[in-house]
Design a protein around this nucleic acid. Structure first.
Length: 424
RNA sequence: AGAGGAGUGGCAGAGUGGUCGAAUGCGGCGGUCUUGAAAACCGUUGUACCGCGAGGUACCGGGGGUUCGAAUCCCUCCUCCUCUGCCA
């Protein structure tokens, strides 16, 4: 959520930022925010003075009662009652204004960072760099959904039987490969100074609001109606919410956490013929890194996180490229997002395996996540997160790129974790 | 899941209708003393909103109610503890 002070003081910047995203009616919406804000403040001021008056009368009545002057007390009572009734009405009005303003602010996305390229869709994303060598595969190269059948390591049909489409069963070396990757990613993150946490994979409504999944995007999460809980779409939600409603000391920054969790996404409407094999699932595993950082240092942190992810891809010897998402492709809550894509040789396409973002104060404002400096003022912190990494497409790329007539070669870094060098 | 008890500031803990945003202790911060530290002593120490400011308002688990006035009374929801039940 954007800060109301920012909109008030830098209205033009807010409008320009929203326009860059292609946000419809930026001026109208911002003007409406400012009007609501103005009316909220006026209503607050008059409500406060009415309450102040009523409090004064109540005190007088108390004093008169003590002095035994019942008649005089009764006299003032009617006045006080009238003021109370008036204040109740004013309070309702004030609350309504506050809620309207809040609801409107929830519909406004984050302002893109100045380095975010302007664009309308993924074709406008900036390719920052391309790394690694795309292997030359022979004639017999096949996509991963054929390889997993051939080697019997992942079973989609069985998943359909147990749950439904998009819930694969990993078997034998497939399961072991999965576990190896998780362990490698966790170990690398811990080496980089992240503290490992194991959060719940179901979250309440307040957590969904905190990181921006709610309102509006509830359709993308699985909902447990009975308890009003949601299955996490990413570990970002429970980890970032760990710090909701807290005031941090400067000395404890940055806060660095890593978690491995399954992630659940309904992907409603996104289920088309294009989506095959491991490319898009309802349940998948991911190792997520999250940082809470001082506003002055969050962009250094973003680069550090980007470097960490890059290191993982290098270790896995996968060809990948780095993208700076354009304004039109940027997530709702993000100020800047770098995507990593690995090249899937048999599919002949790039697959997104990681997103790393700086949300600046957007999430922190919803989370009420603040810090207190030497001047004793509380200010909002910056939150960041990145996938390091999401498993299925990594597996897809590993299988496809490392296939040969002999079988699938496991990258060296993973062998200590898998305990085998080949899937044959 | 059933029965009972409880939720107060960073923590512990007082407060059962009126000068209570809240005693006291611990912790934190600043200072005195000390070569330095400890101890002792003194001071200070919640958050948000409105206001240029003086100041005002709200918050004692959440929401609602009674009352001129609620941390205190009533309703409701949530959470925690104890016992019983169930169970990795």
């Amino acid at each position: 959520m954007l800060q109301i002070v920012f909109i008030r003081e830098q209205k033009d910047k807010a409008i320009a930022g929203l326009k860059k995203r292609g946000f419809a009616d930026a001026e109208t919406v911002i003007d409406r925010v400012l009007a609501l804000d103005k009316s909220r403040r006026e209503r607050q001021a008059s409500l406060d003075s009415t309450l102040s008056e009523a409090n004064g009368l109540a005190k007088q009545i108390g004093a008169l009662m003590k002095a035994g002057d019942k008649a005089a007390a009764e006299d003032i009572k009617s006045q006080a009652t009238a003021l109370r009734n008036k204040s109740k009405e004013m309070g309702d009005l004030q609350q309504q204004t506050e809620q309207d303003l809040q609801a409107l602010l929830y519909t406004i996305p984050n302002i893109p960072n100045s380095t975010v390229p302007t664009g309308t869709n993924e074709e406008d994303n900036e390719i920052i760099s391309v790394h690694g060598k795309v292997p030359e595969l022979g004639e017999g190269a096949v996509p991963h959904w054929e390889l997993i059948k051939k080697y019997d390591i992942i079973d989609f049909e069985l998943g359909v039987k147990i749950t439904g489409s998009g819930f694969p069963i990993y078997k034998g070396k497939g399961a072991r490969l999965q576990r190896a990757l998780v362990n490698l990613f966790l170990d690398e993150a811990v080496k980089a100074g992240y503290t490992e946490v194991q959060p719940p994979v179901v979250i309440n409504e307040a957590s969904g609001y905190g990181t921006g999944q709610l309102p509006d995007k509830e359709g993308q999460m699985y909902h447990i109606g009975e308890e009003n809980l949601y299955l996490i779409p990413t570990a970002e939600v429970p980890i970032t919410n760990l710090y909701r409603d807290t005031i941090r000391k400067e000395a404890e920054l940055p806060i660095k956490n890593v978690a491995f969790t399954p992630c659940f996404r309904r992907e409603a409407g996104a289920w088309g013929a294009n989506v095959r094999g491991l490319n898009r699932l309802h349940q998948f595993d991911k190792v997520e890194i999250v940082q809470v950082q001082h506003p002055d240092r969050s962009y250094d942190t973003l680069m550090e996180m980007r470097g960490h992810i890059q290191g993982l891809l290098e270790k896995l010897e996968l060809p990948y490229r780095l993208l700076n998402l354009c304004s039109g492709d940027l997530g709702f809550t993000s100020a800047i997002t770098y995507d990593f894509e690995v090249y899937s040789t048999a599919q002949k396409k790039w697959l997104e395996v990681s997103s790393v973002s700086n949300f600046e104060t957007y999430q922190a404002n919803r989370l009420k996540l603040r810090w207190k400096g030497e001047d004793k003022k509380t200010r909002l912190l910056h939150t960041l997160n990145g996938s390091a990494l999401a498993l299925p497409r990594i597996i897809a790329a590993l299988l496809e790129n490392n296939q040969s007539e002999e079988g699938i070669k496991i990258p060296e870094i993973l062998v200590p974790y898998t305990g085998f060098e080949w899937i044959k």
